[in-house]
Design a binder for these strands. Structure first.
Length: 275
DNA sequence: AGGGGTACCTGCGGGC
DNA sequence: TGCCCGCAGGTACCCC
């Protein structure tokens, strides 16, 4: 579900609703306990009540909530997580936890499949998942030269390398598929075989696609799993060129789009355009 | 050390 | 109708 554009969209939308407001209450529903482990509702509440969120950041698909006492929350939406702000307690079947603020605003964390995480860290406490991340796909610090160097050391295919968050952070299955199509690269070709010029083109396309997706508030597929911070659908679905288009004609050459499996995941590509 | 397989969950749609 | 299977935007952990 949520990849970089979706996480980005949600954070920007909830930011003005929750920043600099004092937390007055915190609650977890019975089935939400795992997402704040190893803390429980009581410990989490003790540490977050009276705190304010000073800043919301994103690195790849991870969300970072900076609190006013140096603590931080590291959140991840995984496959089916959503955040939404409401003015009243939400009675949604899959609402796992909620933060209440002094002005009566609620931040709700909804997650059907219960893979999502929401971890409260003490000042300077390490978080392995975040430390292992490579540069964010939209960070100006990531140059084509750096990406090229990283790809050169990989034996695996370019598809898996781009999904690897330690190489480049933020891409998921949809945007990797779309970026490889835009760059005319066959998903199974070896990551190390890309020339510097091909890497430049790839990075340019990745950024173009991510930026466009951000402008359209992400991708909502037919199953409607992803909805943005306001509960609305993302419109990048209409711009998908290969993802979820098996057997449909390629927009460039009309060849039928193929679906194959790599590492138990569906990969879509045009067998004629991508080599 | 990199890479493959699998686990973590719930829900949906297709085939029989 | 209902059951069983495969599938889903992601990561972490096992094993070799």
């Amino acid at each position: 579900m949520p990849e970089l554009p979706e996480v980005h969209t949600i954070l920007r939308q909830i930011e003005p609703e929750i920043l600099h407001k004092k937390v007055t209450d915190f609650s977890v529903t019975g089935k939400g306990l795992k997402l704040i482990a190893p803390l429980d509702q009581q410990l989490f509440t003790e540490r977050i009540v009276k705190r304010k969120i000073l800043e919301l950041r994103r690195h790849g698909k991870f969300m970072v909530f900076e609190l006013d006492d140096g603590q931080k929350i590291i959140g991840h939406l995984r496959m089916s997580g959503r955040l939404s702000v409401s003015r009243w307690p939400l009675t949604h079947k899959h609402n796992r936890l909620q933060l209440k603020f002094a002005d009566g605003t609620y931040l709700n964390f909804i997650d059907t499949r219960r893979f999502a995480t929401f971890h409260l860290l003490k000042t300077n406490q390490k978080y392995p998942g975040l430390d292992k991340l490579g540069p964010d796909a939209l960070s100006p610090n990531l140059t084509a030269k750096i990406l090229h160097q990283k790809l050169k050391t990989r034996k695996k295919n370019i598809y898996s390398a781009l999904l690897d968050q330690s190489v480049i952070a933020g891409l998921g299955n949809i945007y990797v598929n779309e970026s490889l199509f835009a760059s005319k690269s066959y998903p199974k070709r070896s990551a190390g075989s890309l020339t510097l010029n091909e890497t430049k083109l790839l990075l340019k396309n990745i950024r173009k696609i991510l930026s466009t997706a951000i402008n359209l508030k992400g991708t909502t597929l037919l199953d409607k799993t992803y909805l943005d911070g306001g509960g609305k659908e993302g419109k990048f679905y209409n711009l998908l060129r290969v993802y979820d288009r098996e057997a449909k004609p390629c927009f460039v050459c009309t060849t039928k789009i193929k679906r194959i499996r790599i590492g138990n995941r569906s990969v879509y590509f045009c067998p004629k355009c991508q080599t």
